[in-house]
């Protein structure tokens, strides 16, 4: 399973970026082979509107099945995540990636329900 985190850096000890659409990095952890992949999302800064859907699209392209983030996506981004079948967990805004992963494994994060 590939788990994506919105982050401010590129390793286990980086902080989670609580923002979704305009997150600085996307860190993807592949549970099967223990590998990390990071995507630099800072180019999104250039977009006036529509940051959320584009970041969601990127997650899909990276093959993520789970998303762990802070405050959660806006409406349009949520639509893309739902269509892409990416389960979204929120509330990790103040954690490091490591802490967020543990919290996810221990079911301590809230899963967003698509309305």
């Amino acid at each position: 399973m590939k788990i994506a985190f919105t982050t401010k850096g590129i390793n286990w000890d980086s902080k989670i970026d609580p923002r979704f659409g305009r997150t600085e990095y996307i860190l993807v952890y592949n549970e099967e082979n223990n590998e990390f992949f990071n995507y630099d999302n800072r180019e999104i800064e250039k977009e006036a509107h529509g940051a959320g859907p584009q970041t969601s699209q990127k997650l899909f392209e990276l093959g993520a099945k789970i998303l762990v983030t802070g405050n959660g996506p806006g409406g349009n981004a949520a639509t893309v995540l739902e269509k892409a079948g990416i389960k979204t967990f929120v509330g990790a805004g103040e954690m490091t990636v490591k802490e967020a992963y543990e919290a996810y494994q221990e079911n301590k994060l809230n899963e967003l329900q698509w309305s």
Partner: peptide, 14 residues
């Protein structure tokens, strides 16, 4: 405006 997005075999319109 990124109002049209391709997601795999789907086209989404915002």
């Amino acid at each position: 405006y990124h109002a049209v997005i391709q997601l795999g075999e789907m086209i989404l319109v915002f």
